[in-house]
Amino acid sequence: MGCSCFGSSRVDQKDLLGKTKHFTYKELSAATDQFHQRNKIGRGGFGTVFKGNLRNGTPVAVKTLSAFSKQGLREFLTEIEAISNVRHPNLVQLYGCCVHGDNRILVYEYLENNSLDSVLLGRFRTIKLDWSKRAAICLGTAKGLAYLHEELVPRIVHRDIKASNILLKRDFTPKIGDFGLAKLFPDDITHISTKIAGTTGYLAPEYALGGQLTMKADVYSFGVVLLEIVSGKSSSRSNWGGTEKLLLEWAWELYQGEKLMDLVDPELDDIPEQEALRYIKVALFCTQANASRRPSMSQVVSMLSRDIRLNEKQLTPPGFFQGSGAHNSLQSKDKLSGASASFQMSSAPTTLTELNPR
Rank of each mutant, 00 (worst) to 15 (best):
L167D: 13
L167P: 12
L168I: 04
L168K: 05
L168N: 07
K169G: 15
K169I: 00
R170A: 14
R170D: 09
D171I: 03
D171Q: 02
D171S: 06
F172T: 03
T173D: 07
T173N: 08
T173R: 06
T173M: 07
T173V: 13
P174H: 06
P174G: 01
K175H: 02
K175D: 00
K175G: 00
I176P: 04
G177F: 01
G177W: 00
G177C: 04
D178A: 07
D178H: 05
D178L: 04
F179P: 09
G180W: 03
L181E: 00
L181K: 01
A182T: 08
A182P: 00
A182R: 04
K183N: 06
K183A: 13
K183E: 11
L184A: 15
F185V: 04
P186K: 11
P186S: 11
P186N: 02
D187S: 15
D188V: 02
D188I: 02
D188A: 08
D188M: 02
I189A: 05
I189F: 06
T190C: 09
T190R: 13
H191A: 12
H191F: 09
I192R: 08
I192M: 09
S193R: 14
S193K: 15
T194I: 01
T194K: 11
T194V: 15
K195I: 12
K195Q: 14
I196S: 01
I196M: 10
I196C: 04
I196T: 14
A197T: 12
A197H: 04
A197V: 12
T199I: 11
T199F: 10
T200H: 11
T200N: 15
T200D: 14
G201R: 10
Y202V: 05
L203A: 05
A204I: 07
P205A: 11
P205N: 10
P205W: 10
E206D: 15
E206N: 10
Y207W: 02
A208P: 05
L209Y: 09
G211I: 03
Q212A: 06
Q212V: 14
L213N: 07
L213D: 01
T214Q: 13
M215F: 15
M215C: 08
M215E: 15
